[in-house]
Design a protein around this nucleic acid. Structure first.
Length: 189
DNA sequence: AATCCATCCAACCGCGGCAGG
DNA sequence: GCCTGCCGCGGTTGGATGGAT
């Protein structure tokens, strides 16, 4: 059994509390100086009254220089829908295909926008955990720029008992997340 | 103007995986 | 093999905000 994390914040720090500009700057300065890593010891070293996990989250989701803020484009939304059909709630994997987007951002966008949209259009609740991913084997593989076309595709999806998917259904998707340059050709905001 | 309600999203929590001792 | 600690992930929460009444 897992013991209580040593990173658990003290009771005074456990409340949700927004990051101030000063805190952000301290974190940025420290990471620029020492690099990422050693999160548990970072707060003390950087003079922050936060737990390491909180610092890590703040850096990865908001302070990192390559983070892209702002609305999701149609292409991005389309890609998220298709990747979610393939991968389920693997937000980090999905976010890995969207440069500058974080898993938290993708997850929030899915829950607040896309899920609602799909349900409104008569789909089954697409927000199922990874336990029953959709079977995408029957989906046509035509590359499409249209969100609607892809949503149509999803109407034939059914939950499967096995967490399997057919990569051939998405020949244009590059799921090699580790080595290859990103191949998404969305807008350049 | 005040209150209620729904929505969004930043932040937190708990857990699993993994590495090192 | 077991224990401990760190990292990263997905789920959830709660404050802020804006629209409706």
């Amino acid at each position: 059994m897992r013991r209580p994390s040593s990173q658990k914040p003290s009771s005074s720090d456990s409340q949700k509390r927004s990051w101030s500009k000063e805190e952000d700057q301290k974190l940025i300065d420290y990471i620029q100086k020492h690099g990422e890593g050693c999160w548990p010891s970072l707060p003390q070293a950087a003079g922050l009254r936060r737990c390491g996990k909180s610092c890590r989250l703040r850096w990865l989701n908001y302070l990192k220089p390559d983070i892209k803020r702002g609305d999701f484009g149609e292409d991005e939304e389309d890609l998220i829908i298709r990747l979610h059909a393939l991968l389920g709630n693997r937000w980090s994997l999905i976010a890995g295909r969207l440069p500058g987007r974080t898993d938290n951002e993708v997850k929030n966008y899915w829950n607040s926008h896309i899920r609602k949209k799909l349900i409104q259009m008569g789909h089954r609740d697409p927000n199922n955990p990874r336990h029953h991913r959709f079977n995408v084997g029957s989906v046509k593989s035509e590359p499409s720029n249209s969100v609607n076309n892809n949503i149509e595709d999803h109407k034939v999806l059914e939950p499967t008992s096995k967490p399997e998917f057919n990569l051939n259904a998405f020949p244009d998707l590059n799921l090699d997340l580790t080595l290859t340059a990103y191949c998404y050709s969305g807008d350049d905001r």
